[in-house]
Design a protein around this nucleic acid. Structure first.
Lengths: 342, 342
DNA sequence: TCGGCCAGATTTATCGTTAAATCTCCGTGG
DNA sequence: CCACGGAGATTTAACGATAAATCTGGCCGA
């Protein structure tokens, strides 16, 4: 491996001069600079980032920690962040924590966090107490929905408002028995699924429809396959449903398949709305009505919070809540349609 | 930040003893070990991985470099690899190279590669010459379809065979005008799209159907949206089609939407087959007929090749080709169905 | 003529860890 | 009684870079 001192020797200068050239510092003569660059080229020298990091602290790398690589939401998130970081010369690497608390904690060991200039953390398995135990000296921005200690900088969406919008829309379009797929009634550790179930029940109450606990269809994971099975089970169990608010688009995709399995038409027999507005949702058949959390704004906000901390370690924590809006597509009926006879 | 020497001082031992304890080396007395561990706990010490890496070389981290985070295929790949690595105590981090040659080259700078014990590289933008220029001292396994220099260890799928299988199946089920969506006729730098178009044209030829260049529908990116648009354009242009072999499942999803836009039914009017067998493909409506490349076997093979290099830097390069099989679902007709009158 | 200053370079010390060599006892066998 | 071996610890010297301090001429103005 070629090191800086190899370059220095070959160029007849000191190691420090090579370092100065490569870091674009101004205290190097023009001809010396040229000679060094030539030798760098010639020997194929590349800097050892590990050494630089140890000495200088800076890494130029931001870490994104997500629960699962194969949930589409996280893929899209990672992609957006990566694109936003590139123009600043920063660089994103993504790690998977696994959805379990244990693995999430290990992913969050100081040891691992230290490797980055900053960390964007999308945690699901951790509760307040876990997060409270972590005292990293790396700037962190939390992305996500669970309750977190005050001292964290954080970006999240309007979960309750979004769920409410979606459910109101279903009711508005004629649904009366609206299930919440993947919902969870208030738990000790509030998380995405509880907030969204909350919005669901508020919308129902407001419409004078008492939320039926039998219409809360829980899920262990938010995978397509599990959602499909859960819908099948619910329908087989005789639950009457004419609308489904799926807590994520991924889950909604499973619902679409499950309804089809049961011979039910969407939106004629059952209307469906999701949450997240994944890239794919627009291209499903029929297109998925869903809640758009303004991904671009969230990414912008997250990076702003991170930069603020990078510049000032003592910056006041900020909680940004991104607005949501309803996107109406083909899984809900056109306005004014009446319930057709099946 | 707490360092090893803080721990050493507090425990009244040398730094080296702390290091020995933490690395489970045997030359430490039982009581000393205990005391050190207590102090570690008490001070909340965590090892500095950067320093360890600089000194020892080992990082315990494998890098996976993919073109795009938001193509579902790569999310699933990353997930599988991560799961496979976890039991060995290794750790996966994923980087995005961006599909462009330029950014891919920068992702592949020695500087970046050096940070990992080994690298799994899923390259698309690089050609043979680029890859030939890279001489990393990190074990690399290439995942993917483009032609690569002999010296690389590599895992790929049977592209031609898979495409042929899919196309044969479409023909077998009655399709006569089979388009290849995302296909590319032989280019200077063969890649996934050329191999799969190859399999398509061979299957046609074998069936006595001359491949019509008008049925090759090229794509710049393999995104759902672009595929949908391309199908719309092709149909609007008057191209007659009764079967589509989409070069990836992602593209097939776009085709499904595009066909629906045009009022065509799948599989009644147009049959459709994809390639990759994504997790979602099973849950589309109708379920997507596709080629399964045996993801599990590919991951196993890739990690085996990587381990081999980790153990022996001079290990002979190996090219593993994973078998494919056809998965028949609802986007192609049942055997023996005749073409229904539209 | 001489001190001062600045550009352009070098020297020194260090980041936190680990490999390798070394030291220090203490028990054992001859 | 002494040499020897080995367990249990320490010391020394890096890994490859950078921050901060220092050095060296040459040019300038007074």
């Amino acid at each position: 491996m070629v090191t800086m001192s190899d370059v220095a020797r070959a160029a007849g200068v000191s190691v420090m001069t090579v370092s100065n050239v490569l870091n674009g510092r101004s205290n190097v003569g023009a001809d010396t600079r040229l000679r060094v660059l030539e030798v760098v080229e010639e020997l194929g020298y590349e800097i050892n980032l590990t050494a630089r990091r140890l000495r200088s602290g800076r890494t130029g790398t931001i870490g994104l920690i997500v629960p699962q690589f194969d949930l589409h939401y996280y893929g899209e998130l990672a992609s957006r962040i990566s694109e936003a970081l590139a123009p600043e010369g920063m660089h994103l690497v993504v790690e998977q924590s696994g959805a379990s608390r244990e693995r999430e904690l290990s992913a969050l060991s100081l040891a691992r966090l230290q490797q980055y200039d900053g960390v964007l953390l999308s945690a699901v398995g951790l509760d307040m107490a876990d997060l409270d135990r972590i005292h990293p000296d790396v700037p962190i921005v939390l992305l996500g929905e669970q309750a977190v200690p005050e001292r964290y900088h954080r970006v999240r969406m309007s979960n309750v408002a979004g769920a409410r919008l979606a459910t109101e829309h279903l009711i508005d379009r004629g649904a009366r028995r609206v299930a919440v797929l993947g919902g969870k009634l208030s738990a000790a550790h509030p998380e995405m699924a509880t907030y969204r179930a909350d919005g669901w029940s508020r919308a129902l109450e407001e419409a004078g429809l008492p939320p039926d606990p039998g219409l809360v269809i829980p899920l262990r994971t938010y995978s397509i396959a599990e959602a499909r099975g859960a819908i099948a089970d619910a329908l087989a169990g005789g639950t009457e449903i004419d609308g489904i608010f799926a807590v994520t688009d991924e889950v909604a995709i499973g619902a679409l398949a499950g309804l089809h399995d049961a011979g039910l038409r969407v939106p004629d027999d059952v209307q469906l709305a999701g949450f997240d507005n994944l890239g794919i949702s627009e291209h499903l058949v029929p297109g998925l009505t869903t809640i758009d959390p303004d991904h671009a704004a969230m990414v912008t906000a997250a990076l702003r919070l991170l930069r603020r901390q990078l510049e000032d370690r003592t910056a006041e924590p900020e909680h940004v809540v991104s607005d949501v809006r309803l996107i109406v597509r083909g899984t809900t009926r056109a306005h004014g349609d009446s319930v057709p006879s099946a």
